[in-house]
Amino acid sequence: MSLIFPNRERMALKQISSNKCFGGFQKVFEHDSVELSCKMKFAVYLPPRADTGKCPALYWLSGLTCTEQNFISKSGFHQAASEHGLVVVAPDTSPRGCGIAGEEDSWDFGTGAGFYVDATEQPWKANYRMYSYVTRELPQLINANFPVDPQRMSVFGHSMGGHGALICALKNPGKYRSVSAFAPICNPVACPWGKKAFGGYLGADQSQWKAYDATHLVKSYPGTQLDILIDQGKDDQFLSDGQLLPDNFIAACTDKKIPVVFRLQEGYDHSYYFIATFITDHIRHHAKYLNA
C-alpha cells in the first residue's frame, strides 16, 4: 500500500487496490470525506494516456445498493475509456458506517441510497451530502491527486445514478461538458423511490424536492448546450413500475428544446448486462465532447 500526501493532510488518499487494465490502471482509494464525515472509497481508472498528460475526467454515479465496485467489475467500460483516454471516477453511493439509526433498514434509503442530494433533515443532514460530495469534494480531490484537466469533466450514471448525473449537469450549467444515463430516475418527485428518499432527506415540503428533480430542473435550465443521451431497456421492470418516468423528462426537454436522444432498447432490463451492452456508446458520447 502506498500513500499519497497532497498539500493537506485531510486529503490523504489510501490506495486499496491497483490492477492493470487495457494498458492503464484500475485503482481504488479510500479517504476521509469532509462532506460526508466518514471514510469513503472511490474507484478511478487511469488510461495509458494519463502517463503522459492530463486527461478529461468522467464521473460515473451508480444506482441503488451499489458501491464503487459494481461499475468497475461489471460494465466493461475499460477498453473504451482506455482508447478515448478518459479518467473514469466511480464513487460509492452513500456514506457508510455513520451509525445513523435506520441507515441499514432498507435497500432504497440510507446506506447505498444517498440519491445524490444534500440532506436537510435530521439525522441525515450531517452525513448524507452526496450532492456536494460528487460535485465539489470529489472533483477537488481528483483534480489535486490525478493527472486530470479540471476544465473537462462529464457525468453519467445508472438508475439513481442516472438521476444523479442529470441533476448534477442540470444544476451546474457549463460545469459538465456532457451527460448521459442508463435507465435514469427521471422524475423522482413523482415516483415511489424518489418520494421515499426525498421525504426522508429533504423533508415534507415537496417544493424543496424540485431542486433535485431532473424533469423540474429542465424547465429552468438556462439553455446552455447540453447533449443528453439516455438508454432505457424496454423490458426494465422499474420502467413499467413507474419508477423511472422518462416520458416526463422527454416531454420537458422537447418543450424546452434541450437535445435528448432517448433510445428505448428492445428486450433489455435494468441490469449491468444492459449497461455493458451500451457502455461503449456512452463513453464515445462523452469522449466526443471531452476530447473536442
Binding site: C253, T254, K257, P259, V261, F262, R263, L264, Q265
Partner: peptide, 8 residues
C-alpha cells in the same frame, strides 16, 4: 426501426 425519441 429502433425506438428512438429525439427532443429537438
Amino acid at each position: 426501426t429502433p425506438d428512438i425519441r429525439i427532443t429537438v
